[in-house]
């Protein structure tokens, strides 16, 4: 019972932190995008626009929650929750730091990375079902794209991560971080890292791979028909996915909470936040820089370039590790 209670408290705390992070990640993104586009960004609500997330949340809450007549009501209402639940579930296994042998996180699953990939795969259902159940053509097109894109990119993503798993010899996220005490995997697994970075963008449906919600082509993609709170849930899920991908990337390739330059007096959690923040900055930077890809090129790139390279990378890594032993 105590264990359950402890897990509950931990989960609530992590959720609170993560949702707050989401709110400010959104502001962070809008600010950075604005600065890169020579705009000042949101600056009306509170000093430097710091209360903007609260204003946005209030706005979302008061919007009418519409369900189209043609929609399948049950699935239509369920879909955002699938997206959100899977996005939040990922944070259950992410260790944020470590002190005295105790991990800072809700749970320490020994197959953490597999759990994460399993959850993100389920996350596709949220988007697919949302588009399917909306009973409208643009959401349907969006969800068809989502299904194809996420399935094909998830393949390369998993492949790119397997290289790290071979090097670390474990699927536990904490174990992977410990294996990087001396050398971060971004160096030996540079190709894997590049593939992870690319596929992660596609996986989280962000520009330049945001064909799922391409405004110029599909109005809003899978969430065209959603409004108010339900749209907000998709929004939260999308950002949580981005944060999750940043956290996982930090754990797998940048040594998690391991300090840089031996600066051990700075706590691990700060290192983790800094690294994940850099990751998120990278995504925002990417979004401002590159235009959206054409859909067929996206698929070509995924299947004909990323997948072979990921496979090659995996084989070479495996061969080198086998020779060394």
């Amino acid at each position: 019972m105590d264990v359950l209670l402890l897990a509950l408290i931990k989960s609530l705390f992590v959720l609170f932190v993560v949702v707050t992070t989401f709110a400010y990640a959104m502001l962070f993104e809008r600010k950075i995008m604005a600065w890169m586009q020579l705009r000042p960004g949101p600056n009306r609500v509170g000093p430097w626009g710091l209360m903007q997330p609260a204003a946005d949340a209030a706005k979302m809450l008061f919007k009418e929650d519409l369900t189209p007549n043609t929609a399948d009501p049950l699935i239509y209402k369920l879909a955002p929750w699938i997206s959100l639940a899977t996005a939040m579930g990922v944070f259950a296994v992410i260790p944020f730091s470590e002190s005295g042998g105790t991990l800072w996180g809700v749970g320490d699953v020994n197959a953490g990375i597999l759990f994460i990939f399993a959850l993100t795969s389920i996350g596709v259902y949220g988007i697919s079902l949302a588009g399917w159940s909306s009973g409208s053509k643009f959401p349907l097109l969006g969800s068809v794209r989502a299904t194809a894109q996420m399935i094909s990119y998830e393949l390369s993503m998993t492949m790119s991560v397997v290289g790290v798993l071979i090097l670390a010899g474990t699927t536990s996220l904490a174990g992977i971080v410990h294996a990087q005490n001396s050398l971060w995997f971004v160096l030996p697994q540079f190709v894997g890292f590049a593939i992870y970075l690319t596929t992660a963008v596609a996986e989280t449906n962000r520009a330049p791979f945001d064909l799922v919600e391409a405004e110029t082509e599909l109005v809003g993609g899978f969430h065209t028909e959603y409004s108010g709170l339900r749209f907000g849930l998709f929004f939260i899920a999308e950002y949580l996915n981005m944060i999750a991908v940043a956290c996982v990337g930090t754990l797998l390739f940048f040594g998690g909470w391991n300090p840089l330059f031996g600066l051990t007096f700075i706590p691990g959690i700060i290192w983790f936040v800094l690294k994940a923040g850099a990751f998120i900055f990278m995504y925002i930077w990417l979004r401002t820089t590159l235009p959206r890809l054409r859909y067929d090129r996206l698929m070509n790139f995924g299947w004909k370039f990323l997948l072979p390279v990921a496979t090659l990378n995996l084989m070479v890594t495996a061969a080198i590790v086998a020779v060394e032993h």
Partner: peptide, 10 residues
């Protein structure tokens, strides 16, 4: 080059 451009605009 593209990344550098956006970064310099920052």
């Amino acid at each position: 080059q593209g990344f550098l451009t956006t970064f310099s605009f920052f």
